[in-house]
Design a protein around this nucleic acid. Structure first.
Lengths: 170, 170
DNA sequence: GGTTTTTACTTGACGGATCAAGTATCGGCC
DNA sequence: GGCCGATACTTGATCCGTCAAGTAAAAACC
């Protein structure tokens, strides 16, 4: 008879979890939510959301040629179907510049502005500290193990896309 | 010189991560996003969101006396400041019933309806399969390790609430 | 027993997310 | 070179999430 798990206590759950798998899934979602909010509190005082910060990071790391809109979406940590308007809002804040691609007029190329780079520069320190704070309790070997396990989880999800056929047949 | 990590490949990142901590954090958020979408695809064909599903699960597990609105919010996996309207939408779907508490008229007590219970019953099987699919690649010992590591991450976050004082002084 | 504080929502306003449908452009194919 | 399918967004509608301010009831205080 084991004591109530930490996850259980945090969500004030009376009954024990039905399975370890369920507890793991809940723990994963719970932890990610807390981490996301923690990191959001770092960037939001600077007037951007985490998603917007993610776009700026992607553009800073991109080539000078500019990155097409949907290429940005592909690289986002969280899928972003609303990528057009997300970037629109960044353009309004003058953190991103856009221009229709001259060689393929369907595409819209995006660049980070100097203002955008400055903002990222101001955030770099706190975000590194943030990452360190998030993973700090695990130690290098622990982080390594966690990364590998999460890789496994995603691989499994990707490789079983039709696990439930419920979706296609609306 | 190690090969590009799986996380890096998935978000098409050229440069290596600045630190293992950063890679771990990104991996955690990336994985949780994929898992959340995977589970959402199970419940959404039944006309509810994952958040709404979470509320129904909480109410099914609660006592017959009914649960006050904010107690539900406290138990949610993802923090839900919009809990009132979330439950409002569930009431419109007749999956939840509400009544002002007679002994403390500030509170609004919530119950799951029979219709709500039926919906959950229809979802129980798929959701268990879903959890199993998510954690399936790790094995029992692996899930155990993952749970413990995630517990550590959250504990660290909770215990360092004032890590950045940026927020309080608006 | 009346005032202040706290609690438990509720409401309004607005930004963000999601899905479906539309438009412009490009690349192949005859 | 004209059509067809695919690509790369764009736009509209709707819902959801979030923060701030408001209201009503209970609790604490004097």
């Amino acid at each position: 008879m084991t004591r109530a798990s930490q996850v259980q206590r945090e969500i004030r759950q009376r009954r024990p979890f039905k399975s370890r798998a369920q507890e793991g899934t809940v723990g994963l979602l719970l932890t990610a939510d807390r981490v996301r909010r923690f990191l959001a509190r770092i960037v939001e005082p600077h007037g951007i959301t985490l998603q917007q910060y993610n776009v700026l990071r992607i553009l800073r790391g991109a080539a000078d040629a500019g990155l097409p809109t949907l290429d940005i979406a592909e690289r986002m940590i969280e899928e972003a179907p609303g990528i057009t308007r997300l970037i629109e809002r960044l353009e309004k804040k003058r953190l991103v510049r856009r221009r229709r691609c001259p060689t393929d007029r369907r595409q819209v190329l995006c660049w980070i502005t100097t203002e955008g780079r400055d903002l990222l520069a101001r955030l770099d320190g706190s975000m590194s500290e943030g990452d360190a704070a998030v993973m700090g309790s695990l130690g290098d070997a622990g982080v390594e193990t966690l990364i590998r396990m999460l890789d496994d989880v995603r691989t499994r999800l990707i490789s079983s896309p039709g696990f439930l056929a419920t979706k296609g047949e609306h």
